[in-house]
């Protein structure tokens, strides 16, 4: 964790230098804005990783003598099968198509999108899959 945080912190430092160089050589506000935000991107991830690594302690990636198998084990909870992302994606695709070709499609797709979000969020909170 700590080593990952350091990597993102170095990217952040690099971008800080780049922002200064870019602005000084081009005076282009658009690219500078994008670079400043990219600095924020890497800084945000670095801060999160640093903050979390202090909370949970050193992991295998922080030790020189760690073996690859030490990183194995349970990664998290992943739904084995779910149709809800499909419902959500199809309805959102229809909604965005509606913005392009005819706005009435958005009104048609919005209830399906809400239904999809509800199903996705509460899949393991109701019915036969309920396990909380």
């Amino acid at each position: 964790m700590k080593v990952t945080a350091k990597m993102f912190f170095f990217i952040c430092l690099f971008l800080v230098v780049m922002v200064a160089v870019y602005w000084w050589t081009s005076h282009d506000p658009t690219g500078t804005a994008a670079l400043v935000m990219a600095t924020g991107l890497s800084g945000m991830i670095a801060y999160y990783l640093y903050f979390t690594s202090r909370r949970i302690g050193p992991g295998p990636d922080d030790r020189d003598d760690a073996e690859p198998h030490e990183g194995s084990g349970e990664q998290g909870f992943f739904s084995p099968t779910s149709y809800w992302p499909l419902v959500l994606c199809l309805s959102l695709a229809t909604a965005f198509l509606g913005i392009a070709v005819g706005f009435w499609l958005v009104y048609f797709a919005a209830p399906f999108a809400l239904f999809g979000v509800y199903g996705f969020v509460f899949e393991y909170y109701r019915g036969e899959n309920k396990h909380y």
Binding site: M37, G73, G76
Partner: peptide, 27 residues
């Protein structure tokens, strides 16, 4: 195996996604 110390993947994913959202606002 000993369960390693690792952050919750939901929060890692959220932070990475928020970083990409930052670039959306950069645009």
């Amino acid at each position: 195996h000993r369960v390693p110390n690792r952050p919750n993947l939901v929060s890692v994913g959220t932070i990475i996604w928020l970083a990409s959202e930052l670039m959306f606002f950069a645009a």
